[in-house]
């Protein structure tokens, strides 16, 4: 048997790695490397689940591992890669509202805030400290994904952001409690749908929303409404 402290250490290490992967998503400019970071992150999530399984021996965690690996490590990155090839966007170097460095600082702040808000609340439940840490990191990751969503221009990056949020929720979920297999299944399907559809739409849009906007500018009539207001 592996000792508890070793497992705990492993969990801590994995959590730190997962935070780093989220930060990578916030800062990387190359689209392909974003995909890779996301796959890595999902893999780390699967590892965490494995570690928890070793610790708690709950069969639901293994389901989670399998689902995560199939959908998030293999299927989604592959699919995104295909889409990216078609729309041929290599880099997403524009940032809005917040620069990468500031985003990293903000993420740290958010981790602190979430810890301050949630830790006392979660202590009401009979869970250990490491679980609380995991949950807090999970929620923080959701926010980091959200930051990705609004600070990056390309829709494809936004999808990655959304997926990160989702990973955060899964992290939160596996630390706090395991959901029934069925629900998990459904959720994954749902997320697949969302990702597919948004990806296809971004494909339909050919490029970023902004470029689109530039195209449309020539068709003045679409924007009469806007002009009228100014």
């Amino acid at each position: 048997m592996i000792s508890d402290s070793l497992l705990e250490g492993a969990l801590k290490a994995l959590l730190v790695l997962i935070v780093i992967s989220a930060l990578l998503l916030l800062t990387r400019k190359n689209v392909l490397s974003l995909f890779r970071s996301y796959a890595l992150q999902s893999l780390l999530l699967a590892f965490i689940a494995v570690v928890l399984y070793v610790q708690e021996r709950k069969i639901e965690l293994l389901f989670t591992v399998v689902l995560t690996v199939i959908s998030k490590v293999i299927l989604i990155p592959f699919f995104l890669g295909r889409v990216q090839q078609k729309i041929s966007i290599k880099r997403d170097a524009e940032f809005r509202y917040i620069k990468p460095v500031a985003a990293v600082i903000l993420s740290t702040a958010i981790i602190v805030i979430i810890y301050a808000v949630f830790a006392p609340l979660l202590r009401i439940l009979p869970v250990t400290e490491i679980f609380i840490l995991g949950s807090v990191i999970g929620i923080s990751m959701t926010f980091m994904g959200l930051i990705v969503c609004y600070s990056r221009k390309r829709v494809i990056t936004k999808v990655i952001g959304y997926l990160t949020m989702e990973n955060g929720v899964v992290l939160f979920g596996i630390f706090l409690i395991e959901l029934p297999f069925l629900i998990e299944m459904f959720v994954i399907m749902d997320i697949l749908m969302v990702v597919m559809i948004t990806a296809i739409m971004s494909f339909g849009m050919n490029a970023s929303v902004e470029e689109f906007h530039v195209h449309l500018k020539s068709l003045r009539q679409w924007f009469k409404e806007e002009d009228a207001s100014k």
Binding site: T142, G145, L146, Y162, M165, V169, L179
Partner: peptide, 15 residues
């Protein structure tokens, strides 16, 4: 995007 992002938080609440 807007609804799905918000629904993710809903999911946290649900958990």
């Amino acid at each position: 995007f807007i609804t799905s992002i918000a629904m993710v938080f809903s999911f946290i609440g649900m958990i």
